[in-house]
Design a protein around this nucleic acid. Structure first.
Length: 222
DNA sequence: CACCAGGCAAGTA
DNA sequence: TACTTGCATGGT
């Protein structure tokens, strides 16, 4: 909460999720998997221009055609398949009704989403939090990186451990979780690049990126 | 040219 | 359980 305040005072509200509708958020949550948001926006624009950002339209379009349309967002074949899986789940389980889906008990819906192939913890939590306004904290690579550098997360902490850390220390309010995650992403983008400007970071300088197991490059260079 | 971006699942030991 | 690899485009 102390850290949240510092980030909020420094950056102000981030106005996430940058999307117009819940369906658009859900689609964006899949498209942004390991992908720059810029490219996701391009793909969403293409889908929007063809009026494909509705569950019915996405269910009707052939998977191969969908893959072609979302090409710019990368991993387009797997993402088209994942979107189809997710749309099908919503149709089968909630008759394609998002109000019904988000009225489901939080833990139950999260488990159901995790049961959809292609929906992992972060994507599930993003859907719950941003599309459903349900207080499920989103943990991403930036969260790990920043909190590791501040000694609050260790390399052995898995997704669930980190999520519990936040949810244990914060009031369960979707608007707070929303803003906090967005602020973490903003902070990492501005201050945790390869030539970090830690001195200007509102959280201060605590640890150099060297040896940080959460920088993406460490996976391949090892 | 190398590296990175708001992950996930499947395969291997 | 704990790694490793494939998936793919576009910006820096």
């Amino acid at each position: 909460m102390e850290i949240y305040r510092k980030l909020y005072d420094h950056f102000g509200p981030q106005h996430w999720w940058p999307a117009q509708t819940r369906t658009e958020m859900i689609v964006g949550a899949v498209l942004t998997q390991n992908t720059a948001w810029r490219n996701v926006e391009s793909a969403l624009s293409i889908l929007r221009s063809r009026n494909l950002l509705t569950l019915d339209a996405l269910r009707a379009i052939p998977e191969k055609e969908l893959a072609t349309l979302i090409r710019v967002s990368g991993f387009f074949n797997v993402k088209a398949h994942r979107l189809k899986n997710l749309i099908q789940f919503i149709q089968n389980t909630y008759a394609g009704n998002l109000d019904s889906m988000f009225a489901q008990k939080q833990e139950t819906l999260r488990e159901q989403l995790l049961g959809v192939s292609g929906i992992g913890a972060e994507t599930a939590d993003s859907i719950l939090l941003y599309a459903g306004q349900i207080p499920s904290f989103v943990v991403d690579a930036y969260t790990r990186r920043i909190f590791f550098r501040h000694g609050l997360v260790t390399p052995s902490d898995d997704y669930s451990a980190i999520q519990h850390l936040f949810m244990r220390h914060l009031p369960r309010q979707a608007p707070l979780f929303n803003e906090y995650h967005a602020l973490i992403v903003r902070t990492a983008k501005v201050y945790c690049k390869r030539e970090p400007q830690c001195g200007a970071c509102p959280l201060g300088y605590l640890m150099p990126p060297t040896g940080d197991p959460f920088v993406a490059s460490s996976r391949r260079s090892a």
